[in-house]
Every structure is written in structure tokens, then in C-alpha cells.
Computed example of a mutant assay.
Amino acid sequence: MDYKKLGSRIREERLKLNLTQEILAEDINISVSYIGQIERGERSLSLDTLFKLAHRLGVTIDYLLQDSLKTSKENSINQFANLINNRSQKQIQMALDMIKVLFSHLDNKD
């Protein structure tokens, strides 16, 4: 886990909401020094704290962690599978068609 990248993402989202470290820390019941250490990547955080941060910042945990996690082809396939879960066949086909167009465009740029 890359705590510097996670902290940077948390800081970025906090600033988008015009929140100070003090307000964010108070809202999720942690100390100001701890939120500063998290944002600088100096401290790890519990799942509970990560959940509270994501909820307060209005983002998902996977969004906060996306820069910290190494992606693999299998992980990407699982993400695609989750995106199409509970979608109609028509919606799935539309998404596939869009991906085909995107890849065709990317292939033409190389």
C-alpha cells in the first residue's frame, strides 16, 4: 500500500470540498495531527477511519485507494464484471460497442 498516494488523494478530495484539516478531523472524530499524518503518508489508518473519511468526502473507498493499488488484468476484468452486473443485455451490448469504438480509436493513434 502506498500511503503517500492515499494521503494525497484524501487531501485532494478534502480541498475540493473546501474543508480544513481541523473540520475534517472533527467530523470523523480523529485528531488534527492524525489527519495531517495520514495526508502526508506518514501513518496508516484503520478500515473504520478509511470508511469514515470516504463517507465524509463523498467518495468510495476504492476511489481513494485507486492510486495505491497495483492493477492487474484480472483485477480489471473483475471491475468490468462488477460494472455490468445487474445490467440488461441491451445495456451490456451498448457498453461493449462503446469499448470497441474506444479501442479502435486507440489502435489508430499508435
Rank of each mutant, 00 (worst) to 15 (best):
L6G: 00
L6V: 02
G7R: 04
G7H: 06
G7F: 11
S8A: 02
I10Q: 03
I10R: 01
I10L: 01
I10M: 01
E12N: 08
E12L: 11
E12A: 11
E12F: 14
E13C: 00
E13S: 02
R14V: 06
R14I: 09
K16F: 02
L17C: 00
L17F: 00
L17V: 00
N18W: 07
Q21G: 15
Q21R: 14
E22C: 07
E22I: 09
I23R: 13
L24S: 01
L24F: 00
A25E: 05
E26I: 09
E26N: 13
E26S: 14
E26V: 08
D27R: 15
D27S: 12
I28Q: 06
I28F: 00
N29P: 06
N29H: 13
I30Q: 11
S31R: 12
S31T: 15
V32K: 09
V32Y: 01
Y34S: 04
Y34R: 11
I35P: 09
G36L: 00
Q37I: 05
I38L: 15
I38C: 05
I38H: 01
E39A: 07
R40N: 13
R40D: 07
G41Y: 00
R43H: 12
R43K: 15
R43D: 05
L45N: 09
S46H: 04
L47W: 01
L47E: 10
D48A: 03
T49C: 13
L50W: 12
L50A: 03
F51D: 10
F51C: 07
L53Q: 08
L53E: 06
L53I: 15
A54C: 03
A54W: 00
A54Q: 00
H55I: 06
H55W: 04
L57S: 02
G58D: 08
V59W: 05
Y63P: 02
L64N: 07
L64T: 06
Q66C: 07
S68P: 13
S68E: 12
L69H: 07
K70N: 08
T71F: 06
S72C: 08
E74C: 04
E74M: 04
S76Y: 10
I77S: 03
N78H: 10
N78I: 03
Q79N: 09
Q79R: 14
Q79D: 11
F80E: 07
F80D: 04
F80L: 14
F80H: 10
F80C: 08
A81R: 15
A81S: 12
N82L: 14
N82Q: 14
N82A: 10
S88D: 03
S88T: 15
Q89V: 09
Q89L: 11
Q91L: 06
Q91Y: 08
I92H: 06
Q93N: 12
M94L: 14
A95P: 05
L96I: 12
D97G: 06
M98Q: 14
I99A: 01
I99Y: 05
K100M: 07
K100A: 11
L102I: 12
L102Y: 15
L102N: 04
F103R: 12
F103C: 09
